[in-house]
Design a protein around this nucleic acid. Structure first.
Lengths: 356, 356
DNA sequence: CTGAAAGCGCTTACAG
DNA sequence: CTGAAAGCGCTTACAG
């Protein structure tokens, strides 16, 4: 079945023969920093060009014990936040001369097949950018001596490095914003309830509302999924005491929520109902939605992720590190505004109440 | 700098020693179809489990001359069509026991760095799913004996395999639909003008309109880019003789076009202006947009792509093959309807005029 | 079915 | 600076 006729590919020995030098010399020519005279180097380069030689990265990996491959595990790409992350990761990893091996799709249970692949390919590092992956997996990798960084999530035990934004602070900020906007009754459409992002965002939201005397948040479960968010908000808006402000755990769901509110319930946003999201993803900026949302500084998050990974690979130290960045509450048109606290920054409107 | 302390990893020799068999026996245990007795196999498996052994895929690749890695080159992921494709590709490739090496970001000029990487990693196949990549590149790969499949595009010279939908037919269908809907003046927001998809979609559109006596299509260049599409449509709608129907070369731009028409020009869609897109991407289904659009059968396209690649890898034959699938004109709310020809299928409304 | 051995295409001490 | 040689962890004829 596997009778492929892939061309063998030119080897360093063939180049050596052609150039009249040793195979070692060819290798050194293509090893940055190796000691090689300009003259030999030139001879090798000529021969290599003639033959169309390119070093075999597979063979190199075998001997250096470094694949220069980073595995990125991303359960789903439907939420545009993740493709954006992926693109930026690709860019930065390429700059560091690393390749990106992508694992996508739902990994059931402890997803051993994926883990197996990671291990078999001897990837130099792993980025876990999805909320549905078992934290078991990440610790296993760390045990195997492979640097792992969690992107946009943490595990309970803090044993694995992570890059997140201050989700709790974000939830709190959103609550304060809605309170300042004079809202009376508060709803929450959750993400996946066990995820750290969801837990923290909700915790902050609830705390700040409780501090203002609001203990009766109406909660619906959206699981970071459009369809489930639609079902949840349908139920929420069908109540006689429906909220006049809903914090939706991410923009991806907020878009669906807005469509249901407008087109199924005939509500005006933000007059009848205020919506606040999270992420500041592409569609949040589209005029039809104009979602007021907590931004996540994607570029800086990716930068931190790649930086941490590179650091751990270089040093061999796999000590868990947790980087927490700050977002901004970007104010658009999906929520009623407070009287004060809106400032202009970088061409965006930000909610930044001056602390007394 | 690179003083990594990545753990060496268990080797087959270590497992062999532990199991009291030869290293060959260990290898055979992990090679499906190799001749090995159940007893030896069991001994090896036990030892492997104890030591946490996993075959080194890098070493295996070196000797088999197959990496089981497929490179996917995708210039940008902003258009949700591509993340969807990526996810499906990941799924199918995993099923075939292949890994996905992702190359993203703009490749300038002839993007030799990327090409270099592809060659260095000895990927078994390449999927080119982006319109901005040089066709030069793809032919170079084919020359090197690596199967290449173009996804959603073709090259002029047909030298490289491709999977597309019948874009010309699609453009024609859209024109017929708009004509049947009684539109009088036609616009077109193009994609990247040199791309095969754009050329074909526009050609079909223009042909069918011309056949009905409309030779004066108003054209704006959108380059498959939201911002450019916005600029283009702004100019188009500012004309005194603005169109009452616009075919936008993909949904990604159509969304932006609709927002401009509605919120900058105060137009009602579809009463004042009909919009038709292409792809049937997620946002086209969102209630705020409800874009009438030519669908591209993503799953079948990906299936065909992976199938062709697998076939070429297995046979070693790299003969260019061109698979052209058919889409449907999915009718939603962004365009005025013809009196006849709308049928229900799979829960969607389709435009399917009965040929006389 | 099994083991000893060659070899995949490189990198990297080692000796000169 | 250079070359001969060992070795990375496997697969796969080959002989038994």
């Amino acid at each position: 079945m596997d009778s492929g006729v892939k061309k063998p590919g030119v080897t360093s020995s063939e180049v050596a023969r052609r150039a009249g030098v040793s195979q070692s010399a060819v290798s050194r020519t293509f090893t940055p920093g190796a000691s090689i005279s300009p003259k030999t180097r030139a001879k090798v380069m000529d021969a290599a060009k003639e033959l169309g030689y390119r070093p075999n990265a597979i063979a190199r990996s075998l001997i250096t014990n470094r694949s220069r491959i980073i595995a990125v595990v991303m359960a789903y790409l439907e939420n545009l936040f993740y493709p954006d992350v992926l693109e930026e990761l690709g860019r930065l990893l390429a700059k560091e001369n690393y390749r990106l091996l992508l694992f996508t799709g739902q990994m059931d249970r402890d997803s051993d097949p994926v883990f197996d692949q990671l291990m078999q390919y001897r990837v130099d590092g792993i980025i876990l950018a999805s909320t549905t992956l078992s934290s078991h997996l990440s610790e296993e990798c760390a045990t195997a001596g492979i640097p792992v960084v969690l992107f946009n999530r943490t595990t309970e035990r803090d044993a694995v490095s992570s890059v997140t934004t201050s989700n709790r602070e974000g939830g709190r900020r959103i609550a304060e914003f809605l309170l300042a906007g004079g809202h009376k009754r508060f709803g929450y459409i959750s993400g996946i309830e066990s995820s750290s992002t969801n837990r923290d965002r909700f915790a902050g939201y609830r705390e700040a509302l409780a501090a203002a005397g609001h203990d009766d948040i109406v909660v619906g479960v959206g699981n970071y999924n459009r369809t489930e968010a639609e079902v949840a908000v349908r139920q929420m808006l069908g109540r006689s005491d429906r909220p006049d402000a809903i914090f939706v755990a991410n923009d991806h769901m907020a878009v669906a929520v807005m469509d249901v509110a407008r087109y199924e319930f005939g509500l005006n946003i933000p007059e009848d109902l205020s919506i606040v999201g999270y992420d500041d993803v592409g569609p949040a900026r589209w005029t039809s939605y104009g979602i007021t949302t907590m931004s996540q500084p994607l570029k800086r998050m990716v930068e931190a992720t790649v930086g941490m990974l590179m650091g751990q690979i270089a040093s061999g130290e796999i000590e868990a590190e947790h980087r927490i960045l700050n977002g901004e509450l970007v104010v658009r048109t999906s929520a009623r505004l407070p009287k004060t606290g809106i400032v202009e920054a970088d061409g965006r409107r930000i909610y930044k109440p001056s602390k007394a």
